[in-house]
Lab assay of single mutants.
Amino acid sequence: KLLSSIEQACDICRLKKLKCSKEKPKCAKCLKNNWECRYSPKTKRSPLTRAHLTEVESRLERLE
């Protein structure tokens, strides 16, 4: 599967780190437990900047 097509777990399953069936409108866990089942939009991760990478590398060197 391509990364862009990976389905996201519902908010509660993601928060509780449960295996989500990803069914809509309610996944199996939410249906069974009568929880409100919501699927928040995916958040875009910002790409690493060179400055951040350099900072992490220098912190790693100090720890070694």
Rank of each mutant, 00 (worst) to 15 (best):
K24N: 15
I12L: 10
C10S: 01
R50W: 04
K16E: 02
L2G: 15
K17H: 09
W35L: 14
C10E: 13
S21L: 03
A28L: 13
L3G: 12
C13R: 05
K19N: 07
K29M: 07
R62C: 11
C30T: 07
R45Y: 02
T54N: 08
R45I: 02
L48H: 04
L31Y: 15
E61R: 11
R59A: 11
S58Q: 14
C20L: 05
I12E: 12
C13N: 01
K1P: 15
S58I: 14
R38P: 07
K22D: 04
E7M: 09
I6S: 11
E23D: 13
Q8Y: 11
I12A: 10
C37N: 01
K16I: 03
T49L: 05
Y39P: 00
C37P: 03
E7K: 06
K22I: 00
L2D: 15
K24G: 13
S46E: 03
H52Q: 08
S58L: 13
I12H: 12
R50V: 06
K26Y: 15
E55H: 10
C13G: 03
N34V: 13
S21C: 04
R38T: 15
P47G: 06
L63P: 03
K19R: 13
E23S: 14
R59F: 02
K17F: 00
K16Q: 01
P47E: 07
E57H: 06
N34T: 14
K29H: 01
P25I: 03
E64V: 12
L60M: 12
L2M: 15
L18A: 11
A28P: 02
K42F: 14
S46T: 11
T43W: 02
E64I: 10
T49A: 01
E36A: 12
I6F: 13
S58W: 14
H52S: 06
K1W: 03
T43D: 09
T43K: 04
K26D: 09
C27S: 08
E57R: 10
C37V: 01
K44R: 11
S46C: 01
A28W: 15
L31W: 15
K26W: 15
I6L: 12
L31E: 13
V56F: 03
K17E: 00
W35G: 13
K42C: 08
S40Y: 08
K44H: 10
R59V: 01
Q8K: 06
A9K: 03
S4L: 12
R14N: 01
P41M: 08
